[in-house]
Design a binder for these strands. Sequence first.
DNA 1: AATTTTCGCAACCGCAAGCGA
DNA 2: GTCGCTTGCGGTTGCGAAAAT
Length: 263
Amino acid sequence: MVRAPCCEKMGLKRGPWTHEEDQVLIAFIQQHGHGNWRALPKQAGLLRCGKSCRLRWTNYLRPDIKRGNFSNEEEETIIKLHEMLGNRWSAIAGRLPGRTDNEIKNVWHTHLKKRAKKNEANRETKQYSAEASKCETNNSSESEQMNLRPQVNENSSYDSVSPQQSSSEFSCGTDSSSFVTADNQDMATNEDNESSDNFFDIDENFWADSLLFENLDFSPPTAIEAELQDSFTPCNSNMDDSMDFWYDLFIKAGEQPVLPEFL
DNA sequence: AATTTTCGCAACCGCAAGCGA
DNA sequence: GTCGCTTGCGGTTGCGAAAAT
């Protein structure tokens, strides 16, 4: 496929848009719509390439765009959605009416990335503490049962385990299957030590593809959406928990519960 | 007050998917 | 099936403004 020549080579204008150009573009689209972006600038009398026009319209001139700072709720929503969807900015933008993927991408890189990292570090620290205390309990009860003193390696202590190690390498007592890991995701512990049969086994791309929402006529409100990642990840939850969680989601939203097919 | 550094955001680039011929 | 075109998306850049030195 032959790449179309860039705007500059064709003698078209680049760089920031002027007010006049904006007005021309708005007026043209209001009158004719934007069926063909490539043909639009010529028809509208703009010395811009179609791509530039489309970008200017979708990111700035569209009437339904919400300008101004992001609210705290919006920022939290972005962080949560990013945990679920990754860098799928358009999918995230689809959950935030009036916000563009470009805007969300910018706000992520300038503000939210740092905050998300901080949140993650806090969670890992908390999780590590919980695991450590749980292990202390298990070890002491096991040793009581077996009438044995716990075999503690003096060179190793819980403190020597880094938070990064905690979820993937740290094991409690004899049960090394208690913790499940996934790429770059901190996973909750399976507290009741379910057998692997009870794990909710679906394709790992499930969440990333955001089919969860897109295939349903139901969109959980932001506040509930935010709870989603905290409370439930399909690969580490058993089926009963998944169903309960799903029902709660609908009930909180005041909707008639409808289970997705995978449940 | 002048200069340098950092930040925020609009715009651009390149790739891939979708679609019709 | 393939080719060419259009569109959409995510990564990156460039520049003005603000903050720091």
